[in-house]
């Protein structure tokens, strides 16, 4: 009694069944916008002017300053041993933090959406605290816990592990907050269907849930990576001063203090490049995900 025996099961009017497929574009919104009028034109002009004065021109100035002495000057500035050390520490710590966030952020989002237990609401609130807490305060808090006067006897001052802890603290919400809405919108019927087709829970997660979450996990992780690369306040105090665990933003700050603006701009250009790549990459990812429906 296999289903294929019934291959002849007929449809009286197949056209009726085939009818009205949804458009290939899925559920992308049709934006009903109008052209600019006089008022809105002035508004756009003002906005663009403000954005130029605040963001565009200053960031351009950084790149201009960094490359003002030619490419070789730029190259020399970013390849000094101190600059490379800082960059290596920054990139490695940020990568580690991103990887941990990808896993833990997804796990926490899952627990927040799929589980219910007393204290879930509190967990929800605590997740956001690193968003709102001043970074220097976060740094001080971590210094107290993991510094020389640690109540738990763990002195991580000036180590890479201390940097990683600080970065984990400030980037905690990114993956959670990008994955959570996708998980809420996810239809549990697809998971039940997979189970009824013989898939064990882990297989269902890997083959049905994870592919749907992946764009959100990727954007959350990318945001966390960008934030970690540029972080300053929370790592400042725990880094243990000038010559120990120094990340790139601290290195750039010291160059500013020494009035080496060209050197600082060179380091800043690298950091800026990373953030631009992440932001543009995210924009493309979002468009791709929206197209896929």
């Amino acid at each position: 009694m296999t289903a294929a025996d019934g291959a002849g099961a007929s449809l009286r009017t197949r056209d009726a069944l085939e009818g009205h497929p949804t458009p290939v574009t899925g559920r992308r919104r049709v934006v009903t916008g109008s052209r600019l009028g006089a008022t809105s034109g002035i508004g756009l002009g003002t906005a663009v002017l403000w954005l130029s004065l605040l963001v565009l021109i200053p960031l351009a100035a950084v790149v201009a300053k960094a490359t003002g002495g030619g490419w070789s000057g730029f190259w020399n500035a970013i390849t000094t041993p101190a600059a490379l050390d800082a960059l290596r520490l920054t990139v490695l710590s940020s990568l580690a933090v991103s990887a941990i966030n990808a896993v833990m952020g997804t796990l926490i989002a899952w627990v927040l959406v799929r589980d219910s237990f007393p204290g879930r609401r509190l967990l929800e609130v605590v997740i956001d605290i690193p968003f709102a807490l001043p970074t220097i305060v976060a740094g001080l808090v971590l210094l107290i816990l993991y510094g020389p006067t640690s109540p738990i006897g763990v002195d991580l001052l000036g180590t890479q592990r201390a940097i990683v802890f600080a970065l984990l603290f400030v980037t905690l919400p990114f993956v959670v907050r990008t994955v959570q809405p996708v998980l809420i919108g996810l239809d549990t019927e697809a998971e039940e269907a997979a189970a009824s087709l013989g898939a064990a829970p882990l297989t269902t997660f890997r083959r049905i849930v994870l592919p749907v979450l992946l764009p959100a996990i990727a954007s959350g992780t990318a945001l966390a990576f960008a934030r970690a690369m540029g972080e300053y306040g929370s790592v400042l105090l725990i880094s243990g001063g000038v010559n120990r665990a120094r990340v790139s933003s601290m290195y750039a700050f010291q160059q500013i203090q020494n009035y080496d603006y060209t050197g600082a701009a060179a380091t800043a250009t690298i950091l800026l490049l990373v953030s631009l790549v992440v932001i543009v990459g995210l924009d493309l990812l979002q468009r791709w995900a929206a197209r896929r429906g």
Binding site: I57, P58, A226, M229, A252
Partner: peptide, 26 residues
């Protein structure tokens, strides 16, 4: 679209870069 992307830039730019950028211009 460029405007929309630009608005997001400050999310991921290092605060030190922001400060330096403003010093270099102002």
């Amino acid at each position: 679209r460029v405007l929309s992307v630009l608005i997001d830039v400050p999310i991921s730019v290092s605060p030190i870069v922001v400060g330096l950028a403003l010093v270099l211009v102002y």
